[in-house]
Amino acid sequence: MFQLQKLKIARQGRTLLQINQLNLPPHGLTVILGHNGSGKSTLLKVLAGQLPSDEGQVLLQGRPIATYAPRELAKQIAFMPQQIPQPALMQVRELVELGRFAWRGWLARWQENDKERITAAMQQADVSHLAEHALDEISGGERQRAWLAMLLAQDAQMLLLDEPSSALDLAHQYQLMALLQRLVSTQSCAVVAILHDLNLALRYADRIIALQAGQIWFDGSPAQLLAHPQLDDLYGIELDILARPGKHAVAVVA
């Protein structure tokens, strides 16, 4: 779905991101890992069309991403930022309804199927009970789930999530990842998510891309990452892999 070629982003003489070749298919759950300042968020912003590339090309369905009109783009990709805004007075339902903007535009009324999508999305993200609450009176984790509901209502082929689990408690982190995995397997939509938790990534990802200093350091399956001889270099700290018979292996700081 995405093709990146010879991409380079630099700010004040410092290269933030340099990617020779990267393809992202319209299916599968891809997790981006990397240390602070490795260019994860920059990459996601480029994919979301919010940051134009200085050099190289970003093609979406074979077309440069800059040529898409905002609504066309929003039908293809949905984006969750790291910082979710908390506009005063906006109710959760109103937020989720905005996900249908890409399909209905400025004026058209919501159709029957819009309403169905909105209700279903709120159920999937587990925010139905919050529908009438304002965004600035719910917790950070609830706000992240409300935003996810909006992305689901947007019906895009690809979800781009910048640290979607940062404000979630442990149970909701795993619920979120399970939900994303279900979405990927049933609805043929793709997910690209930035995560900080290596174990969460190892357990749910179909593919892991690890960045280091703006360059792709690893691109492969979780099993390949576990077998990587220099895994410690990823975060610059020594890691132990604990193999657990019948369960997922976990990585812990040695």
Binding site: A74, L98, F101, A102
Partner: peptide, 9 residues
Amino acid sequence: TLAQAVGLA
């Protein structure tokens, strides 16, 4: 920025 991401010109 986010309004644009949701599809607003």
